[in-house]
Design a binder for these strands. Structure first.
Length: 634
DNA sequence: CTAGGGTTAG
């Protein structure tokens, strides 16, 4: 529809013929430039149509703006027509027009047309700007090797390299494979003195970030005497993308302290870090900031807020924001679906998924990860299998390892270990560590030492440095009272020089984060906390005595105390000390929550009038009145 | 011709 309107407009070539009418193009061009500058591209094209209709002939100062509008809207056919107009008016040799044409074709992914324009004009082969246009076009269309070849030719021909040349080239090095080449470009920038350019530095910073070299990015960042908003944003989102949420929050604080005002891009990075940390209060603060700055309607931010609230357990708020969105993208849907799923409301998650399909959105691979994990969290095993099949046959999506790991988890938690193992063997793609890891985890739950040994062997082949799997196997041996096995794993870990990351838990309380390590005695309330724990433990022991099932799971307390009191227990006691009855206490643990602590907290929740939410590395546990929401766990 | 942005599981 849209394209056709423009085509019709541009087809009125008669206007070109009428171009003898002696009026001036200057006011038209001025207005066109304004519209293009404000990104009002379809209005610019409309204006161009009016210009032709009124008999005014376009000139070399008209085309750059109109071509840019076409390029931004990816209107390739209209762009070709415009090329015809250019030829008719004979202003093709103008460098402005040349670069606009090349860029237009590149943005429409018509690289051959772009190359033709470049090749057919001998003068353009001497101009930096024309090389720049084609170079960035190649990079944009993932033809990075062509860009590099052109860059080499440019240098051979002795054409001057500008900062914009580097800006077209460097974004091609955003995968680790090309980092070495990117570092050569960095050297090239230094040699040519282009590194003083603000944009070039920001671009290099982003390159390091995208390649995962966060340290290199940081040293570049620190070395920049003045930092613009984009610099801060590049570093903040760089940390966010590479999984350094605490660094994000630190940098955000620092940035505000210096007086740099955040924009939506900054806040998206900050919110995603809040999501990963479960930092509810910082997240709420960011929401206030969003309202204060008037960014309320930004859909990116709304999606980030949905995710943040959903992850922090405020599903009501997440749903509210979701409802407030006039246009819900698949990311918005994925956010709420994942939110309900992860908190054990699998039925609602699936209902939402079906609703999404009804609105005509095509599901993607990511939303299926949320759907499958929702099934796993709520123990809806067969439903999950149905969705895996629907994903392939109904929606034509090839499941990736991330989907298989969810399904292995799903089957494994349900105790269907044989099926899980068969699935791995039959899956058409190579399983990754997470797939075997999910099986290993299932072996822990269902105490299957033999299969665990197999899963461990496979998983360690793929991720030899992942400590979590060694700990898991060691715990499986320890459950089976296989001391030899435990020692074997310990030796293996020592040989490979792997150290267990200390477990820690934290609670947000009155705007501060209180962190506890196992056996921690550094907190100012230590005495009260241990006093509280002693009391709770004696009450809980009585309860265990009266319940057969729990007694089976209850281990010797001394065994636990070997490493000091577990951090989640300390956090729970701290929360109890500082809150009044009826409140909800959220504890976040960096590793997996301990099985015995899980039972302990469950029982405590039956004694005291509190709701506990424990978030560990893999899932959420909601405890209330002596019951835990995760039906399928342990 | 030109630098920064959203989702997932284990």
């Amino acid at each position: 529809m849209f394209v056709q309107t423009h085509l019709r407009a541009l087809n009125s070539q008669s206007a070109i013929a009428k171009s003898l009418v002696p009026t001036t193009a200057i006011p038209w061009n001025t207005r066109l430039r304004e519209l293009a500058k404000q990104c009002l591209f379809s209005e610019a094209l409309n204006l161009y149509r009016r210009m032709l209709r009124s008999g005014q002939s376009p000139n070399a100062f008209t085309f750059p703006f109109v071509l840019k509008s076409c390029a931004s809207l990816s209107l390739s056919i209209a762009g070709k027509l415009l090329h015809g107009h250019v030829l008719k008016t004979g202003c093709e040799p103008e460098p402005f027009v040349q670069t606009s044409l090349i860029s237009m074709y590149c943005r429409c992914s018509l690289l051959e047309n772009a190359r033709k324009v470049f090749d057919e004009n001998p003068q353009s082969r001497k101009l930096t700007v024309c090389y720049n246009a084609l170079l960035s076009g190649y990079t944009l269309n993932s033809k990075f090797s062509d860009a590099v070849v052109l860059f080499c030719r440019m240098r051979e021909m002795g054409v001057a390299v500008s900062s914009i040349t580097m800006l077209g080239l460097i974004p091609g090095c955003t995968v680790p494979m090309y980092l070495a080449l990117g570092m050569c470009f960095h050297g090239c920038c230094l040699k040519c003195g282009l590194d003083v350019d603000f944009s070039v530095r920001n671009c290099l910073l982003t390159m390091y970030v995208k390649c995962g070299s966060v340290e290199d990015a940081r040293s570049l960042f620190d070395a920049m005497p003045e930092k613009g908003l984009i610099t801060w944003n590049a570093m903040i989102s760089g940390y966010a993308q590479n999984g350094f949420p605490t660094e994000v929050l630190d940098l955000y604080r620092e940035m505000k302290l210096i007086g740099v005002h955040p924009d939506p891009v900054t806040l998206v990075g900050v919110l995603s870090s809040c999501t990963h940390l479960g930092a509810h209060s910082v997240g709420r603060e960011v929401e206030r900031q969003i309202q204060l700055c008037g960014f309320d309607l930004n859909p990116f931010l709304k999606n980030s807020l949905i995710n943040m609230y959903a992850r922090c357990g405020n599903l009501v708020k997440a749903h509210e924001i979701f409802d407030s969105m006039p246009e819900k993208s698949i990311v918005s849907w994925t956010g709420v679906i994942g939110g309900y799923g992860v908190h054990g409301h699998g039925e609602i998650a699936l209902q939402l998924f079906e609703e999404m399909i009804k609105t005509g959105i095509r599901p993607d691979k990511t939303v299926f990860v949320s759907v499958l994990s929702a099934c796993s969290h709520s123990g809806m095993t067969d439903k999950g299998l149905e969705y895996l099949s629907a994903m392939q046959h109904k929606y034509g999506l090839q499941p990736g390892p991330e989907h298989y790991s969810c399904v292995v988890d799903l089957l494994g938690r349900a105790g269907r270990l044989k099926e899980a193992e068969d699935l791995i063997r039959l899956m058409p793609i190579r399983p990754d560590g997470a797939v075997w890891g999910a099986l290993l985890n299932a072996c822990k739950i269902h105490k299957n030492v033999k299969l665990a040994e197999l899963a461990f062997e496979k998983v360690i082949e793929l991720e030899p440095a992942n400590i979590g799997y060694y700990v898991l196997l060691s715990n499986i041996y320890s459950d089976a009272e296989n001391l030899e096995g435990v020692l074997k794993v310990r030796v293996m870990m020592r040989e490979r020089q792997l150290k267990k990351e200390p477990g820690c838990s934290y609670v947000e309380f009155s705007g501060k984060v209180h962190v506890f390590l196992a056996g921690d005695r550094t907190h100012p309330q230590t005495a009260d906390i241990y006093g509280m724990l002693n009391e709770l433990e004696s009450s809980v022991k009585e309860l265990v005595g009266s319940n057969g099932e729990d007694r089976k799971r209850w281990k010797n307390e001394e065994q636990l105390l070997g490493e000091g009191v577990h951090s989640e227990k300390l956090a729970i006691a701290f929360g109890l000390l500082n809150t009044s009855p009826g409140t909800e206490i959220t504890v976040i643990k960096n590793l997996r929550a301990c099985e015995d602590c899980h039972l302990f907290i469950k029982l405590v929740s039956g004694i005291v009038d509190r709701k506990f939410v424990v978030r560990d590395a893999t899932r959420f546990h909601h405890f209330k009145d002596g019951v835990c929401s995760c039906r399928d766990y342990w």
